[in-house]
């Protein structure tokens, strides 16, 4: 087991290396002068030079790569072209709102989605099933910012239940103030995640409910609730976990959008501001950070399979 975990952690290295190479080449292989792309059309020669210097664009490609990788390994993500601040510091300042939001979202999503999917599968082809499926398709189809603005329109402006925008840190201002401001954005973010997880739970449960051992459980006279949650859900867990992991990518793009809609000072907003300002070192750092998080989240999920399925042994 420990050996497996070590092997899995080692397997991250090539994946992250390829991501890094990709991110590195993204800028360098773009046709045209990277400095001009970053600085925009109106840049003066001095500005261009400053950018070239800052990013080491005057060196040969391989030298650039190794210098860049070397800094990266020391945790140096470069310096923002706009503010001149160290990117690592910038991320450090902005990460907590995002983390808090993301955690709240995942908890809400799993708590809503899994029971939804289970009931839909159990009552396959009933009105509950159709309702869950309709909600799920809808969740996939409405852009997250439209959902965000609709929530603001209904719950903040018309009903005045929540503040329109903003953020309060749970540690400074207290959990209630945090929740007051975080519920709407978290629900917005959760919509697509709920759609995804509910759908997978339903599909996975439908498959498991057709298995012989479910028939055996019923032949034993086991209560239906026990058949569903003890026998079926545990067997259906692995695909559900997997989709929670891969859906994490959706969560990240949702964060970027939701933070701008609700004006939350997290790393999503940081990214949007960086795009508008073409602050390439920041964009680059964000890609590396989010990819790294994605890989680690999926590693944890992979390892957690063993809890649910004793057949998976390493």
């Amino acid at each position: 087991m420990l050996g497996y975990i070590i092997r899995r952690i080692l397997a991250i290295i090539p994946v992250m290396l390829i991501v890094a190479i990709f991110v590195f080449l993204l800028l360098r292989l773009t046709p045209g002068d990277p400095a001009a792309i970053i600085a925009g059309d109106m840049a003066t020669p001095e500005q261009l030079n400053r950018i070239r210097e800052a990013m080491g664009l005057n060196d040969p490609l391989l030298v650039q790569f190794f210098t860049w990788m070397g800094r990266l390994l020391q945790g140096d993500l470069g310096v923002s072209l706009i503010s001149g601040t160290d990117v690592t510091t910038m991320i450090g300042q902005r990460i907590f709102p995002t983390l808090n939001m993301a955690l709240l979202t995942i908890v809400i999503a799993v708590m809503i989605a899994v029971p939804m999917g289970v009931v839909a599968a159990w009552r396959h082809r009933s009105w509950v099933d159709y309702a869950v499926m309709s909600f799920s398709v809808l969740g996939f189809s409405v852009p997250v910012f439209v959902i965000g603005y609709l929530f603001i329109l209904v719950f903040a402006i018309s009903l005045d239940w929540f503040p329109v925008q903003g953020y309060a840190s749970p540690t400074d201002k207290g959990v209630l103030a945090f929740l007051d401001r975080a519920i709407l954005p978290a629900l917005t973010l959760a919509t697509i995640y709920v759609a995804l997880i509910a759908r997978m739970t339903r599909a996975s449960m439908l498959e498991v409910l057709g298995e012989d051992y479910i028939r055996t459980a019923r032949a034993k006279g086991v209560r239906e609730s026990k058949v569903l949650f003890r026998h079926a859900l545990r067997n259906a867990a692995v695909p559900i976990l997997t989709v929670i992991g891969t859906g994490f990518a959706l969560l990240i793009s949702g964060v970027v959008v939701t933070e701008s809609v609700f004006n939350i000072p997290g790393i999503g907003r940081l990214t949007v501001d960086a795009i508008l300002a073409r602050d390439y070192p920041v964009i680059q750092a964000m890609i590396l950070l989010t990819s790294g998080t994605y890989v680690v989240v999926n590693l944890i999920i992979d390892i957690s399979y063993t809890i649910f399925d004793p057949r998976i042994r390493y």
Partner: peptide
């Protein structure tokens, strides 16, 4: 079921719950 009438099936591999 199981109290007055019980049943065993063909495939003992698939008829038992693999995770219990």
């Amino acid at each position: 079921r199981a109290r007055r009438v019980a049943m065993i099936f063909q495939e003992p591999m698939t008829a038992l719950n693999p995770v219990l």
